[in-house]
Simulated scan of single mutants.
Amino acid sequence: MKRLFSRNETLVAVTLILLCLVIGLNNPTFFTLGNIFTLLRSSIVTGIFAMGVLIVLISGGIDVSFTAVGVFAMYSTVKLMLRFAPDAPIWVGFVVAAIIGLGLGLINAFFIAQFKLPTLIVTLGTLSMFHGFLLFAIGNQIIRDVPPSLTAFARSAILRIPQTRGTANLHPAVLLTLAIALVVWLLLKYTMLGRGIYALGGAPEAAERAGFNVTRIQYFIYGFVGLLSGIAGMTFGSLARQANPQDIVGMELNVIAAVVLGGAYLTGGRGTVIGTLLGVLLVVIANNSLILIGVPTVWQRVVIGVIILVGTGIPAVQERRAGKRSFGLAEV
């Protein structure tokens, strides 16, 4: 039991439950199916981005360009569909966006793996480069007349429950997020590649000595993050029913905060899918539901900042105490 409560996932889950109780007791609307489905819909894009960021953080890197990759893939795909295949099904859009995202992710991988440049510096540069190229060369106007398949996807639901006011709709993209989370969990837990990602975050030199091909792992990591970013971008554009080249960019801190809250270390080597999903829910609820208890919009970022400090500070203190105890036992 003590070990269970010392885990970061448990602390995040307890914080999430307490936050839900505080909001729900002050405003019962929070516990309605309509609001729950809305929160799940709001978690979709953040959740997909977070799965990619989780892998990067575990490997000891940091990527801040994923939002630029997402909006680049989304906007380019919509323009391509409108020009060449306006009646194409939605899966075609997702495949094209994923391929574009993969290509952009491999650009990050090239600079990081081949030139051994710091991941933060590379992705800061490509964040500006990708977004700037999108606005200058591809388009800077909002596209509201999107292909019909995007509109149909936005209106779809796997569950419709009549409410006193309107209908509560559960969007199928929730299943997409869960499917991606399952793939990442299987990758990290049961594959040699997953072990290599953890080893790379723990100690790159030791990982190389153990026989892991660090360059190939880095190409996979940033290519995979690009692919997920393309999917997330296309999901965002579909749900919004428009392609705005100014959207998505700016979400980086919220996504990274959700992953760090879930237990991933910025120094690498630690992180879980379950913790990340809990972190995403915590950030989404804090962003979308504090207004229900009268917290002004301008103060919501302050509250989120406090949650992040507390959520990341407690595990750090616990680890430091555990380290001191281990050191004391070693001396004895």
Score class of each variant (00 low, 15 high):
109 A>P: 01
173 A>N: 09
264 A>Q: 05
246 Q>R: 11
177 T>L: 13
299 W>L: 15
151 T>E: 14
301 R>M: 12
34 G>D: 14
253 L>G: 01
175 L>N: 06
311 G>P: 08
72 F>I: 07
213 N>L: 01
147 P>I: 04
45 V>L: 11
291 I>W: 03
252 E>V: 05
128 S>G: 13
323 G>E: 04
248 I>W: 00
245 P>Y: 12
219 Y>L: 07
186 L>N: 12
11 L>P: 05
185 W>A: 13
34 G>Q: 12
285 I>R: 03
81 M>D: 02
84 F>T: 04
66 F>M: 03
192 M>A: 13
108 N>T: 04
270 R>S: 10
37 F>M: 00
80 L>P: 04
236 F>M: 11
107 I>W: 13
331 E>P: 01
224 F>T: 00
231 I>F: 01
226 G>V: 02
260 V>K: 08
166 G>R: 04
134 L>I: 07
83 R>K: 15
2 K>R: 15
323 G>I: 00
127 L>P: 08
270 R>Y: 05
285 I>P: 01
261 L>G: 12
83 R>E: 14
221 I>L: 07
80 L>W: 12
141 Q>D: 10
45 V>W: 07
161 I>T: 09
215 T>F: 05
33 L>F: 11
145 D>W: 10
1 M>K: 09
230 G>L: 09
62 I>P: 08
34 G>F: 10
21 L>W: 02
331 E>H: 10
205 E>Q: 14
124 L>R: 07
294 G>W: 03
212 F>N: 04
171 H>Y: 04
143 I>Y: 09
60 G>A: 06
165 R>H: 08
248 I>R: 00
184 V>Y: 08
77 T>P: 07
4 L>T: 14
46 T>N: 12
50 A>E: 02
276 T>F: 02
38 T>W: 09
302 V>F: 15
195 R>C: 07
17 I>N: 07
109 A>S: 04
60 G>S: 10
210 A>S: 14
176 L>I: 13
322 A>Y: 09
229 S>R: 01
209 R>W: 11
98 A>Q: 10
232 A>G: 01
65 S>Q: 05
287 N>M: 13
150 L>I: 02
28 P>W: 08
204 P>H: 01
34 G>R: 15
268 G>E: 02
126 T>N: 06
301 R>Y: 13
203 A>G: 10
161 I>L: 11
3 R>H: 13
98 A>L: 12
40 L>Y: 08
53 V>H: 01
40 L>S: 05
160 R>E: 15
145 D>H: 08
81 M>Y: 03
59 S>R: 04
99 I>L: 15
85 A>W: 15
72 F>D: 06
84 F>C: 01
24 G>R: 01
231 I>L: 04
321 R>A: 11
261 L>C: 12
240 A>F: 05
193 L>Q: 14
118 P>S: 09
130 F>G: 03
231 I>V: 12
280 V>L: 03
163 Q>I: 01
4 L>F: 15
177 T>P: 03
68 A>K: 06
182 L>P: 00
14 V>N: 00
332 V>R: 14
3 R>I: 14
298 V>I: 14
101 G>R: 04
6 S>A: 11
23 I>K: 06
85 A>D: 06
323 G>R: 05
44 I>T: 08
37 F>A: 00
321 R>M: 08
321 R>S: 06
124 L>C: 12
205 E>M: 14
90 I>A: 15
287 N>A: 15
74 M>T: 14
75 Y>W: 02
58 I>F: 03
10 T>K: 06
